[in-house]
Each structure stands twice: as C-alpha cells, then as structure tokens.
C-alpha cells in the first residue's frame, strides 16, 4: 500500500509538471510568437487609450450609437469581470416582463420605427458579453443612429455592410455585426 501511494504521488508530480507547467508554457511561447494580439485579448486602442476588446461587447445606450444585445451580468451590464446569462426559463413570467420592457425602450428611442424587432435585440446573450448583433438588428437601428448623428442613412448603411461578417468559410456560424467596431467606425466618420 505504502508503495502504491508513493508511486501515485511521484507520478502525479511528474504529470503535473508535464501537463501543468511544460505544456501551458510551450503553448504560451508559441502563440506569443505567432498570434500575440489574439493571445493578449484582441485589444483595441483609440488615441493611445485602451477602449476595449474586439471580442467583448460593451454597453451602449446613447441614440447615436448602435445598441448591443441585452446583457444579464451584474451589477452592470457587460461586466467583464463576471460573465453571466440571465438563466430565465422559457415559461418564467419575469422573462416576458423583461422582453416587454426592452421592446418599450426600443420604441421609446425611435417612436416612428414600427419594423419587426429581431429577437436577438430583446433577449440576453449567454455570456452577457456578446460582441455581435445580427445584421437585421443593425438595420433595425439604422435610422435612429443616422438621425441622431445628422448623417445620410446610406452612409450608415454602407458602414453596416462593411462591418457585417458573413458565415465563417461561407458555412459556419451566423452572419453578424460587431457592435464596438461599428460604433468606433461611426465615431471616425464625423
């Protein structure tokens, strides 16, 4: 028995060294050489200041910006230190209330817009940090943003088109628009 415990302990130490130290360090070394920007969080700077990550969504509530999906993180939405979904069930009345509130907020920000609201714009994402909205959700907000900025809608539409990513390799995932990148591009238009 004593022998088995010793063998187990030594092998655990050896495998810990291999899989817990050598392996992650080699991976780190390789990716820091070949794709450093991604490994460090795909960070975005503006005027020398860190304004976010291309992969993490951010909250936007001003009319001149495209709004992201609702986020269920606490205490504030898009809290990068505590990712979370809402975990509200499909028959929970609280879920129906919160969807109605989101519909009302969108209508209040743009009272004349009676287009159908894409479902991703009124439902909370899984991570609370979803960086994307669907192209339909961007189009839904187009006139509001153009009006708030005094821009010709066709210019804003062109910007949405330029920032729409299709399915990866033409096959995988869903078409999407990165909200932070789109809004930063809007700010550059002026």
């Amino acid at each position: 028995m004593k022998k088995i415990v010793l063998q187990a302990l030594l092998l655990l130490l050896a495998l810990t060294g291999l899989t817990g130290i050598v392996y992650p360090l080699i991976v780190t070394a390789v990716v820091q050489l070949c794709c450093r920007a991604q490994a460090e969080g795909s960070l975005i700077e503006r005027d020398g200041r860190l304004v976010g990550s291309a992969l993490l969504g951010q909250p936007f509530d001003r009319p001149q910006y495209f709004w992201p999906r609702p986020s269920a993180t606490t205490p504030q939405p898009y809290n990068g230190a505590a990712s979370s979904g809402s975990n509200l069930g499909p028959t929970n009345p609280a879920q129906f209330d919160v969807v109605r509130t989101r519909v009302a907020a969108l209508h209040q920000a743009d009272p004349d817009n009676r287009l159908p609201i894409p479902v991703d714009l009124v439902t909370a994402s899984a991570s609370g940090l979803d960086p994307d909205i669907s192209p339909a959700a961007a189009r839904y907000q187009l006139l509001r943003v153009a009006r708030a900025r005094g821009l010709d809608p066709t210019r804003v539409q062109a910007l949405i088109t330029a920032h729409t990513r299709g399915r990866q390799w033409g096959l995988f995932g869903e078409p999407r628009v990165n909200v932070l990148e789109l809004n930063l591009a809007l700010d550059r238009l002026r």
């Binding site: 609201i117 894409p118 479902v119 991703d120 994307d132 869903e174 078409p175 999407r176």
Partner: peptide, 29 residues
C-alpha cells in the same frame, strides 16, 4: 409569449439576416 412585434423566425435576406429561434441565453455568432 413574446410580443407580436418581435421577429422570431430566421431570416436569410442579405443585409437583414438573423438567426431567430429561442435566442435567450444564446450568442449571435
């Protein structure tokens, strides 16, 4: 139970695509 104004069907029209379906707790990508 969602309001009728919420479009829940998938759309594939270029420029207005959306995944649709039960998107609560799911990511757009």
């Amino acid at each position: 139970a969602y309001p009728a104004v919420v479009a829940q069907a998938p759309a594939v029209t270029p420029g207005a695509q959306q995944p649709g379906g039960n998107m609560e707790g799911k990511e757009v990508r």
